[in-house]
Design a protein around this nucleic acid. Structure first.
Lengths: 187, 187
DNA sequence: ATTAAAATTTAACAAATGATAAAAAATGAA
DNA sequence: TTCATTTTTTATCATTTGTTAAATTTTAAT
């Protein structure tokens, strides 16, 4: 997935603004298992996924709670670092080898001040993440774990193939044992 | 709460841009119980709460699922209408008499294209809503209903006084009966 | 103040999910 | 392939939350 496709996915940028953005990214490569962003750190980069799949999780007691998966075309960031320039609450782990476009937050912030199209691109990005997050929250509120699992395999069939079930269970807000039970009932 | 305080809460706007925004708002007043935004409609306004408290809910089968409360200083909008110009999924009900600043979405969209400060203000608004929503989703994922209730009364003590418990239970993702049980255990 | 309606609590039982442990299956390295 | 490790499933029992119904309390109108 090329950078221009990724940028245009969020919001159609004029040619000039897109070039400006592209001048500020570098392609990086990391192996499976790499921890890209770390909880408790103010992160200074955001990433666009060219290839691969990642998860965001919060470490609670001994166990991880996965709350987000990102794959090709999606954007990786530490929400607190990006929005408030504070320490993040999440780790980002690469679940496959990944090709990523890296962009320094400080440069992006500067572009937001200088280029109205990039500012609106950033606005559209936040808005589209917001609506996805709100819909997940609502789905969480009135659907059973079983319904949420069925919804996931319908909307995101490749996730099941690429991500181990323990992470999926966590993402659905249930234990792995519960998810196994649900899967057994469906068959 | 004055409009300038509300606007500056999100993002410090230059004087000129703030005036431009203020020229586009009108103060409106509705009684308790009024349904301000309706599910299934493309809403053409957003509102800033000067005084009062409201809830957003989705109607599922016979029952309402409340997923958001808004009070003084917060912004009311139909997420789908605002972000995608499509039919909204939520109703907004006024839980008290309200004074609201009304702003036409079409005007705001125009200002986003014309004024970089307003574009960044809109970006900051979406970002701050996004981080709040993500934190709620995560809290939902690894806290028990009891912990979430305690969190709510700590962070938002006046909510309990202003909003009936049935709505709070729904917001926490549990039944009213469960919430009563939790409240009884705490005492 | 009285009364009707609405909201909240309590109780009893059902259903869903969690916790722990063990078995089975899948994966990956030598 | 073989073997050790990791992941997934299955089983059992405990805990939490849901459902229904009734009792109690609060609210609001007359």
């Amino acid at each position: 997935m090329n950078s221009n496709i990724i940028f245009d996915k969020i919001f159609k940028l004029p040619e000039n603004s897109r070039k400006t953005l592209e001048e500020n990214i570098t392609l990086v490569h990391y192996p499976k298992g790499h921890i890209l962003l770390k909880a408790g750190k103010i992160e200074s980069n955001i990433y666009f996924i060219k290839k691969g799949i990642v998860r965001a999780y919060v470490n609670q007691n001994d166990s991880d709670v996965t709350f987000w998966f990102g794959k090709e075309g999606e954007t990786i960031l530490s929400m607190r670092s990006y929005v408030e320039n504070q320490k993040g609450y999440e780790d980002i782990e690469l679940l496959e080898e990944c090709d990523l476009y890296e962009l320094k937050t400080v440069n992006l912030q500067r572009l937001f001040e200088e280029d109205i199209h990039i500012a609106n691109w950033g606005r559209k990005f936040a808005e589209s993440e917001l609506i996805k997050t709100e819909e997940r929250l609502i789905s969480r509120q009135f659907k059973t774990a079983s319904e949420r699992y069925k919804e996931l395999i319908t909307n995101n069939p490749d996730l099941i193939k690429r991500v181990q079930l323990g992470h999926i269970a966590s993402y659905l807000g249930i234990t792995q044992v519960s998810l196994s039970r649900i899967r057994a009932e469906i068959k």
